[in-house]
């Protein structure tokens, strides 16, 4: 009984370390291939279209409503202290430092990350990845690297979009609905945000882009090792990819915030 449970703990630990190592090596392989010529322009453009451009409207929609909710909530909290004029500061700081990078990364995970895991997973179970190998095409370079580069380009841009649209959303609910002086609002927005906050927000979105793409592609690529073959394997690795991406976004969010403050 005792040895059995020890064995179980040991087995879980070994598997955990193995998959961590594999994940890290997978990332390194993709990263190194980003610098090996020729640069895969066409694939990067296709992936930027899929990850970035197609996420445009989802991000705008999410950002408007997030900004509006922040405006409403902030207004009622600040009104208790009689400092409604600071609403812009509250909205802008929250968006730049926290919600912009995090929500963008989570939306991109939901939209593009799941698709990456599923697509690469299907390629794995239908032997398309093996077929690439038989054609002497490096599958990591072919599948992972363009997605990694496209994410690193797209996510910060989407985050910037999210922040700007979110501030606009706060303006909609704060100034137009609740009647805060619009100059006060914009003044507070501009005054409150420092260059350090902006750098912090963008470093977060860079890290998230790497984390999300690596985890999602890794899950798809190693579907056969972790989730088994067939449609069930693909569905399982897609679910795992999304859940683990979201968890790691929040973990890294904490770590980065901890070091930035």
């Amino acid at each position: 009984m005792f040895t059995a449970s020890l064995e179980k703990i040991g087995g879980i630990t070994i598997r955990l370390f193995k998959s961590c190592g594999r994940l890290f090596l997978f990332f390194i392989r993709g990263f190194i291939n980003a610098f090996i010529l020729p640069i895969q322009f066409n694939k990067i453009i296709d992936q930027t279209w899929f990850i970035g451009a197609k996420s445009f409207f989802v991000i705008v929609l999410t950002a408007v409503f997030t900004g509006m909710v922040l405006g409403l909530q902030g207004y009622y909290s600040l009104a208790k202290f009689g400092s409604e004029a600071g609403l812009g500061a509250a909205v802008a700081m929250t968006l730049v430092r926290e919600l912009g990078p995090v929500l963008t990364a989570i939306m991109v995970t939901a939209r593009a990350g799941s698709a990456m895991a599923a697509e690469i997973g299907v390629m794995r179970v239908s032997e398309q990845i093996d077929a690439l190998k038989t054609m002497h095409i490096n599958p990591v370079r072919f599948l992972f690297t363009p997605r990694l580069i496209a994410s690193v380009i797209s996510l910060p841009l989407l985050t910037a979009l999210f922040i700007v649209v979110g501030i606009l959303g706060g303006y909609l609910s704060g100034s137009i609905l609740l009647g805060i002086n619009q100059y006060d609002y914009m003044d507070a927005v501009i005054k409150s945000v420092d260059i350090e906050d902006i750098n912090g927000g963008f470093s977060k979105s860079f890290v998230f882009s790497v984390v999300v793409t690596t985890i999602c592609c890794y899950r798809g690529y190693y579907t056969h090792l972790s989730s088994g073959f067939g449609a069930r394997g693909v569905s399982l690795s897609t679910t795992n990819a999304v859940v683990q991406s979201c968890i790691f976004i929040l973990i890294f969010d904490y770590i980065i915030t901890f070091f930035l403050v």
Partner: peptide, 19 residues
Amino acid sequence: KAFQKELSYMFQDNALFDS
């Protein structure tokens, strides 16, 4: 590598790239 470059493989389920 040189030997493998001269090989080619036809898969049982074709393994065509569906995208």
